[in-house]
């Protein structure tokens, strides 16, 4: 590739961030080699004995492995779906709202939670869902027995997904609202002249207008199938719901950093990265095919 002289300074400006990227994201990749060693910190990466695929085999034997892979994919897929549909529905409702003032206010308020940290939210949700929290008190009015939501493997995934959606839908809706703004108003006028109702307009003008955006977001989300959000789950789970909420990232954290089993944790993490990488390639191929999305 030929670098034009007048673009040179731009490339120089990229250098620092490129260096940071290489130093902090590319170089550590080679550390993944300890997944194939019996890593002993005192001997270092080069001195530790090579054990090949032992850790991967052991991982397959662990009853936890299936569970954490399942949990990760299950929670991530639920979140991906919910995070596509809820913001879209919300954006459609907002789009029909004609009172500018209300619209702006609502939009600002629902997108605030995006900026709150899970450390804080976990505590708040813990209180809301506790035995004498709002939820249990409300259902208590109808005579329902209080439920320990955070200790229930049936409820916990639902709580994880809804709280995640609650936190993010306002923010995600912005993209749709932008997409709506890009639809040619002439189409609505034409539909209106043809006698289409508001609902018909929504169905035949608005939705087709944002179809590519939806497809694009959906395919790009594929790359996240192995990411169920460490921050959220780490702050909200407890040993009682490991069965339904322990995901790869939390497992790697506990094994690697707390139990000092560096190699096993790296092996699990590496497997996750490899799968994620394949999924990203697939999603990119799909996105470029169906939504005309190109990086290069």
């Amino acid at each position: 590739m030929k670098v034009r002289k007048n673009a040179l300074h731009y490339h120089v400006m990229i250098l620092p961030s490129l260096a940071a990227l290489i130093l902090f994201s590319i170089v550590p990749i080679f550390g993944a080699v300890i997944a194939f060693e019996e890593f002993q910190p005192v001997r270092g990466i080069f001195g530790s004995p090579w054990v090949g695929l032992d850790h991967f085999k052991y991982m397959m034997l662990l009853p936890d492995s299936k569970q954490i892979f399942f949990n990760t994919v299950f929670l991530a897929v639920l979140k991906i779906i919910a995070n596509l549909i809820v913001p879209l529905a919300f954006a459609l409702l907002m789009n029909e709202l004609r009172m500018k003032f209300v619209k702006k206010w609502v939009q600002t308020i629902v997108y605030l939670p995006h900026f709150l940290s899970w450390v804080l939210l976990a505590t708040i949700f813990f209180d809301i869902f506790s035995l004498d929290g709002i939820i249990n008190r409300f259902f208590g009015l109808f005579g329902a027995e209080p439920i320990l939501f955070f200790a229930s493997n049936a409820w916990f995934p639902a709580i994880i997904v809804t709280t995640d959606v609650w936190k993010e839908f306002g923010f995600a809706a912005i993209i749709y609202l932008a997409a709506f703004a890009g639809i040619n108003p002439a189409l609505y006028e034409a539909a209106g002249i043809d006698g289409a109702s508001r609902f018909r307009q929504l169905l035949h003008v608005t939705l087709p207008g944002v179809r590519t955006t939806v497809i694009l977001l959906a395919t790009l989300a594929l790359g996240n199938v192995m990411n169920a959000n460490f921050d959220q789950i780490f702050n909200m789970y407890n040993p009682l719901v490991y069965q339904s909420a322990d995901i790869i990232d939390t497992y790697v954290y506990r094994t690697g950093l707390l139990s000092l089993q560096y190699s096993l944790a790296t092996a699990v993490g590496l497997l996750k990265s490899v799968i994620s990488f394949l999924l990203i390639i697939v999603s990119y191929a799909l996105a470029s095919r169906y939504a005309n999305y190109r990086i290069f």
């Binding site: 505590t123 813990f126 506790s130 035995l131 320990l148 955070f150 200790a151 407890n238 009682l240």
Partner: peptide, 8 residues
């Protein structure tokens, strides 16, 4: 305590 396992 019903919530002992959940207490931070």
């Amino acid at each position: 305590d019903k919530e002992f396992a959940l207490r931070k």
